[in-house]
Simulated scan of single mutants.
Amino acid sequence: MESARKWILLALLWSTPLAAAPAPWYLWQSKLDGQLVCLQTSPGPGWTLAKGPFKDNDCRHRSG
């Protein structure tokens, strides 16, 4: 019985990364000079979310 639990746990741990999707990309705009950057997370407090989410790191192809 204990052996079966180990195999089930191993199977669950092994399959988890397969279900993960890549993080979306967003277009961020600087509050200081209006510069635009494409990142997955906010570059900091001086930036605001302009558009998104996108599938690619060029922020050209909309996600969803």
Rank of each mutant, 00 (worst) to 15 (best):
L32A: 13
S30D: 01
P45V: 12
K55S: 04
P53S: 05
L18Y: 09
V37E: 13
A50S: 15
L39S: 01
L18S: 10
S30C: 05
Q29N: 04
A50T: 07
L49S: 08
A4M: 12
L9W: 06
T16A: 15
L18G: 08
T41D: 11
I8T: 10
W47P: 02
L32W: 09
T16K: 11
K55Y: 02
L32F: 09
W14P: 00
I8G: 04
G64H: 11
L13G: 11
R5H: 07
T48A: 12
K31W: 03
S15V: 13
L9Q: 07
L13W: 07
C59P: 00
T16F: 11
R5K: 12
Y26E: 00
L10G: 12
L12M: 12
L10T: 15
K51R: 15
G44D: 14
P17Y: 05
D56W: 06
T16I: 13
K31F: 02
W28Q: 03
I8L: 14
G64S: 11
A23C: 03
C59W: 02
T16D: 07
L32N: 12
L13Q: 01
V37P: 00
A20G: 09
K55F: 01
L32P: 01
Q29Y: 00
L18P: 03
H61D: 11
S3W: 09
A19G: 10
W25A: 00
P45Q: 13
